[in-house]
Amino acid sequence: MNIVVLVKQVPDTATERKLDPADSTVDRAASDGVINELDEYAIEEALLLKEKHGGEVTILSAGPDQATDSIRKALSMGADKAVHLNDAALHGSDALQTAYALAQALGTVEYDLVILGSESTDARTGVVGAALAEYLGLPQLTLANKVDIDGTSVRIQRQTDEGYDVVEATLPAVVSVVEKINEPRYPSFKLIMAAKKKPVAKLGAADAGIDTARVGLANATTEVVDFAAAPPRAAGTVVKDEGNGGVQIADYLAAKKFL
């Protein structure tokens, strides 16, 4: 069971995140880069599956130089090796272009399963997994809160608005995870040290067979026309409950015509 986990580096949600006025892409200098939270769940799931079924876990990340930090972190959780797709031509790629580039990069690795997060915390489009399955022509088993492998078949519980669907397919397949699936482990000191020596293959667009006319800001299928800081919410009223807090809310709701 060889598994590739897709890991995106995103600006830390705990910091003030900004767009770069020059080209409306994420201002990476403004915040620390961290692993997209859900991708830690994807890594954990891959490690659990490896513990059960053997094989290797490979991290694949598309991003600039600083993505190396997130790749090392992923390796220190226990992944075996990594592929870093890094090429200036990819800067400013939108969600579908990113999925295309990742699909091409996957062509350089052997795998039975691709696992990714169901959504990033910065762009939050939630489309990369589905678009990837489309590009690869592989079964889409996304939004999983449970994954079981049996020989060459894979079965997941797909989280829905009403509950869950049981979905089955044959390997290879694309699986995305929601945070209900597991509890990501913390890297041990030993693994952190070991991660420093694990191989990280550098991949340029050409190495992955990526057509550079199909990626990057200039060729993006979407375009940010403008952006601005949201108008600040008018400072709200905060009152301390002196025994009539409920009545005070009712008065507020009545004034706002909710009652």
Partner: peptide, 19 residues
């Protein structure tokens, strides 16, 4: 919705458009 965003993504790939 989570599911419809996925449908949107695959539809756009098929159409060669954007989402």
């Amino acid at each position: 919705t989570a599911e419809n965003k996925e449908i949107a993504g695959r539809t756009a790939v098929k159409l060669g458009s954007g989402v």
